[in-house]
Nucleic acid binder design. Structure first.
Lengths: 247, 247
DNA sequence: TCGAACTTGGACCATTTGGTCAAACATGGA
DNA sequence: TCCATGTTTGACCAAATGGTCCAAGTTCGA
């Protein structure tokens, strides 16, 4: 603060579009995926509790709205209303719409990455693959909005997520590719293309969240239907493991 | 016009949200998918030609912008600029943003539905399935924006497309499910779940268009790369036909 | 050649919306 | 009890945006 003028200016109405790189924050969040974040379990006062509940409510409401309407389509007013607070209050917790969006993305990131992280080398590749399919499908059932949010972000060209994709995610991805390759080398798996296998499992499972409307229109069911969930899981697992050709 | 007042009022600024059902138009478009639309090949004047070219340019520009930014994120100004005309002129051709969006969707519908329509009963299910995968994958390579546009529409809950989904598309879908079932009954195919097989093929192939950023970030390639295209096609075909388990 | 019909875009307008501000309201510790 | 600190919101503001209007071209058939 050597310039005395800056003291009074106080940012003259958002000049130009700031770099606004919430991307950095997302990369950090992706790296600390397993640890569940800061624990801070010391005794909370009523106020702190209420505040935390509100913050959670805001993120939940924002996720719901963003996942349906997209970043541009969502209005702060709509999110605030869904969270049961005023728009001004919403902006008290998150300085801007994009910051809120980043916070939502950040929160979803761990859920998003968890299944692949748990995909580890084991005796039976078939079991590991089945487990991965199960985990991702459960994710599509229990948190379809998260899946949709990420799909939306990809469709935009992932301006905020790209650093995560080519950074932390690529690291995990490469590791899992190696795992699959090891299975193939050991003769435990047919000669498949490891990267494509992972893409395939993602595509197959996320489809049921992202294209849920279509699935519902054509099959008449959704994953929230227990029978349909089971049926889908077996169908996908069978497809990936054995394909469709008669044996 | 019994009320003299209405004469001067002249619709006081778009009253309430009209039904605005461009959905009807879409359903009709979906039904006439194969015929390539009205042919009208009578001699065209210079004017008509230019007009047609402009219309095409508009739809192309609109597709590009809508597919990236979504209905809400896209601005008429941006589309007009991409098409090289003024916003007012754009609105001369399409009465509203939503109407333009519907027109774009309508145009993409035939491309979108074509591969499945061509999926017919034949001697060898393996060939038919491989062909379907090839066609859908080619679609992802040659018209990724169309794929993304539809994905975007699904993620929104398909407000405009739902009638198409549960109408014409469901009809085609059911027919193809029957085809697959017949193969199974004839012992030409393993005991797969026909609806899920179709969903799977859609999911697998569209993934490479919709999640192209992610694929590029993780695999370093995209379908426009000939080698990667071939590799992807074999990988997906092999997966669907034979699965990953060693034989 | 001439005018009716088709095109085109600059100026405008109303509304929506992201964001700011200051004043009112809690609340919990001293 | 009292106030410093943290919350909450209604009133506002400026920019962006969908859409309208009208005047100025263009084209093409008669």
């Amino acid at each position: 603060m050597t310039d005395p003028a800056t003291k009074t200016v106080k940012a003259p109405r958002k000049t130009a579009a700031k770099p606004a790189s919430g991307a950095r924050k997302l990369v950090k969040a992706a790296q600390t995926v397993g640890d569940g974040g800061p624990v801070d379990n010391f005794p909370k006062g009523r106020r702190a509790q209420a505040s935390e509940a509100r913050k959670a409510a805001i993120l939940k409401a924002a996720l719901a709205v963003f996942a349906r309407q997209g970043l541009d389509g969502a209005s702060l007013e709509a999110i605030a209303q869904a969270a049961g607070i005023s728009k001004a209050n919403l902006l008290y917790y998150h300085p801007s719409k994009e910051a809120l969006y980043v916070a939502v993305l950040e929160q979803g990131l761990s859920l998003w990455l968890a299944p692949l992280s748990r995909f580890t080398d084991g005796d039976d590749p078939a079991d590991a693959i089945a487990a991965l399919i199960g985990a991702k499908l459960a994710m599509s059932r229990d948190h379809p909005e998260v899946s949709r949010l990420f799909a939306l972000e990809m469709l935009r060209g992932a301006p905020l997520l790209k650093p995560v994709l080519s950074g932390p995610l690529k690291a995990v991805f490469d590791a899992k590719v190696a795992v699959v390759q090891a299975w193939i080398d050991a003769g435990k798996l047919g000669k498949v293309d490891p990267p494509h296998l992972i893409f395939s499992i993602w595509a197959l499972t996320q489809h049921y969240a992202d294209f849920a409307v279509q699935v519902r229109a054509l099959a008449g069911k959704s994953l929230s239907d227990k029978a349909f969930m089971d049926e889908t899981q077996s169908a996908l697992t069978a497809l990936v493991l054995d394909g469709v050709r008669p044996r």
